[in-house]
Design a protein around this nucleic acid. Structure first.
Lengths: 142, 142
DNA sequence: TTGATATAGTTACATTCGTAACTGTAATTT
DNA sequence: AAATTACAGTTACGAATGTAACTATATCAA
């Protein structure tokens, strides 16, 4: 069958491959160290970085589906890595805040993240790394 | 909490976002047109492009997990878009080949793929598009 | 006020996924 | 050739996912 279409040069395919390779490399770390899922890692990282947030704010920051956030929050709470505080003005809302344990897990994974980042930078080279980051950011506007 | 780590500049995160944006844009097409999943689309595209293959060869080409391929093949077969032919020399193996209907679905999606590709090219600009493709390909060696 | 609409977050359900175990066949070793 | 090992592909099962429906609360409009 003849065609001008080639799956292996199709950008969604290429991008997905690269993305999986990259994500799984880091996932091994948080999975092996803490048995965390990707959603959990992202929620932890967001709370670690921005401090106390509501679930909806986490959705905004991460782009995760709200059910994923809900479940991730529940499971992080079960580990006693975060606590909920009911908002006084709006009782639908819970402010979510990492506990000391949660913060220390976050710190530990941040270090791993920085190391992983360095590894990728070295692999691509600093210029290419920067170029790729900039290109990827453009997709927010697609 | 202070840290040199920033989730929003973390390459796995950036890449995953861009990848989802890109993949879902095209997924809408094959999902709405044929109610296909991503695995099914990839299997179809691979068979369309390379002609008759075995399931293992599809795994090699696509990087899909073999259970995904097995299920996708089954479901494409159910639509009568492919037929199996048992290999004469090795009875474990099935040669998978698209039917006329399968080929015509492939052709139709190829056209959509080319159009989508053009849209992304226009968005990024030809040079940047090329640069991005090349960068992504490097991740195969990571 | 009351009724309608919107929002925060959770839950139920059906679908999809990955791991591991399995079946059947082929290749290799003894 | 019998026993072992390797491989193609499928299936069972538990975990994760997305959609849609739901609960509770807040906001808006009449």
């Amino acid at each position: 069958m003849k065609s001008e279409f080639d799956l292996h040069s199709f950008l969604p395919f290429l991008m997905h491959h690269a993305s999986e390779k990259l994500s799984l490399g880091f996932r091994d770390i948080y999975r092996d160290r803490y048995r965390m899922t990707r959603s959990e890692w992202r929620v932890l990282a967001t709370l670690g970085q921005y401090g106390a947030l509501t679930a909806t704010e986490i959705v905004t920051h991460t782009g995760l589906h709200k059910t994923k956030v809900s479940r991730a929050v529940f499971s992080i709470e079960k580990r006693r890595w975060l606590k909920r505080y009911q908002d006084e003005n709006d009782r639908r809302v819970h402010r979510l805040d990492l506990t000391t344990q949660g913060k220390s897990a976050f710190t530990s994974l941040c270090e791993a993240g920085v190391a992983y980042d360095r590894k990728v930078r070295d692999f691509l080279g600093e210029d290419e790394f920067k170029r790729l980051s900039d290109l990827l950011k453009r997709f927010n506007d697609l």
